[in-house]
Design a protein around this nucleic acid. Structure first.
Lengths: 343, 343
DNA sequence: TATTTCTATGTAATAGCTTGCATTTTCTGA
DNA sequence: TCAGAAAATGCAAGCTATTACATAGAAATA
């Protein structure tokens, strides 16, 4: 194990050097407003002269907080979470917080373990994705007074803070739009719905739109597969291998949709001429793929930023749960068009 | 401020419940081999009965370590860092570590501040990107015995651990390959080289290849701009606006290259017919853009994973600095072809 | 049996900072 | 100038786990 290094300066050393008490030095560092300017100058000079930086453990134990905020996300490899966490992190850095990040790979058990680890590592508050998890986790967090903010979804629990959007309604709107263009036959490529409430809601929204149009939602085949371009490709092939190709392929996110477009193109099909494909999220990939993807724009960055703001105020001011529902927006590009039968 | 929650059990509570001293309980938790089986059973029973979990701050101060590993990266929005950090994090989770992440937006001052913050937040070790930074930072870290691993580049300092690759050599190889195909006129789109050693090395590599071929490297115009697709587009326009279009555009990374391809296509140019464009990194975008991008593949995930392993062993075993140079690989796709003059 | 060697456990000294409360200094206004 | 209020500062009590060292007891050896 690594030793503590040459004996580093402590608060007391700084206090001595500045000719004040440790209390004053501590206040200089934590509540500079409470110290006179003259004293503060002296102290800060001593701080930088000694190159002092406070001992973390001591501070954590004395103040009973760490300034660390945890985020447990499904993966950093999807640009939406990378974006969101980047914004979350930036928001907290502005408030002198730091972000502890871990990804669960969409596995609930992993997630539960990581949440406990974060708490054991001193996280003052936690960002979680989606609402669905073992109730024991919520109890665990409540017992320890660790505030949480949920993002990417809205919670039904009135005491749960969140910054989310309505996955179901957004999906329903997009599919209804496609139905309005004439689509009548569908297939769906989704992430596994059993352990992913957002994915499930998106499928439910699509079904709802189909049902509302007087069509048979149960007839829509669904391929469940983890989010990746490659999986999108193979899911498309799987769908294309069945009797008749649907006119619209509804994808759980843009990554799957990009894979589907690639596979369709590779199979010699024209998108959207032979088959329309829609996504969800609106990441950069959606504009780079050809044809560009029609999708739902989710304000990921704003969500991350607001989640940071919200979590901070919960930790700092023990604020009442803040519940923010953001708007999504349909983005029409080239991968969705009226089906052949309509032309 | 949030209170500590209902008074949670302490080591002492557990000791009392198990009828032993706090030292024994501590040993049960940290070095179970040193305690007799009978005692251990008693203690563990008390632990789970009281639902005890050790206080983070107290542990940190007493043990002088936290199990927290920091990573200060330029941005999470570029897939390469998202990938790398994901792998880094995964490697450390396996070893019961947790990852503190912050992004500096390629700003050295930000980076310096974030490094200090991470240390102040108890990071046992740090992952940094690139070698170039204020020497004071290295002193600061050395004074505090905080091991660091550098990734994405190789350090000349024999005491500095790293897991990197040779940006310069990789770039030189790719450009030499293009020259071999007949290219004689060049332009370059790069991230600002003043504050980014990787970007600078890539430009140097390109220049080297040009010089080696007996051509005039100084004649190559360079547009410096932050990494983003949009900036790649406008940089291309800027280059295209000059007298004669070069046959090869060398981009500092894939993101810029994708933008350049889009702008070229939008301007009615054929890539690679009218102009060849090459990137660096090999991210997903490179395969999704059309024409697919010829680029240098960098093993980002492996780099992240190895950086995690390395950092852990430095912290844990105070191992000698481990220095790993990974191989990059040229990936030939469609955006590079022999120039018109050669056909 | 006496002596030595281990093993298991306990005692108590830290570790360094924050903060409630007490005290001193400075400011305000008559 | 001085009482009273406000601001600045100091005192010292925590906060909780780890671990060096001490000790007791068990096992091994002579």
């Amino acid at each position: 194990m690594v030793s503590t290094g040459r004996n580093l300066p402590t608060l007391e050393d700084v206090a001595r050097a500045a000719g004040v008490s440790t209390a004053t030095v501590s206040r200089c560092l934590n509540e500079p407003g409470k110290v006179s300017e003259k004293t503060r100058d002296h102290v800060m000079q001593a701080v930088s002269k000694l190159n002092y930086s406070p001992n973390f453990g001591a501070r954590a134990i004395a103040a009973n907080r760490t300034g660390i905020f945890g985020a447990v996300i499904p993966t950093m490899e999807n640009a939406i979470f990378a974006r969101g966490i980047e914004a979350f992190q930036k928001s907290l850095v502005e408030k002198n917080g730091t972000t502890l990040v871990a990804s669960s790979a969409y596995d609930p058990e992993n997630e539960a373990r990581l949440i406990r680890t974060m708490v054991a590592r001193g996280a003052d508050g936690l960002l979680l994705i989606g609402t669905e998890r073992d109730p024991e986790i919520y109890t665990f967090l409540a017992d320890r007074n660790i505030p949480t903010v949920i993002a990417w979804a809205c919670s039904a629990d009135p005491n749960q803070a969140y910054v989310g959007f309505d996955n179901r309604a957004a999906s329903e709107r997009l599919v209804a739009h496609a139905i309005g263009m004439g689509h009548r036959t569908f297939a769906c490529i989704s992430a596994p719905t059993a352990t992913n409430d957002r994915a499930r809601d998106r499928v439910l929204g699509a079904r709802q739109a189909i049902t509302t149009a007087g069509l048979d939602a149960a007839a829509m085949p669904i391929v469940e597969t983890d989010y990746s371009i490659e999986n999108g490709r193979s899911a498309f092939r799987q769908i294309a291998a069945t009797a008749s190709l649907p006119s619209l392929i509804i994808c759980g996110n843009d990554v799957l949709a990009v894979g589907a477009i690639q596979a369709a193109t590779a199979a010699g099909l024209d998108v959207p001429g032979d088959v329309s494909i829609i996504g969800f999220d609106d990441i950069e990939l959606a504009t780079v793929i050809s044809p560009a993807l029609t999708t739902v724009h989710v304000p990921h960055r704003e969500m991350g930023r607001l989640a940071g703001d919200t979590l901070y105020s919960l930790v700092k001011d023990a604020a009442e749960p803040i519940r923010i529902e953001l708007e999504t927006r349909l983005v029409e590009r080239q991968s969705l068009a009226a089906p052949k039968s309509m032309r």
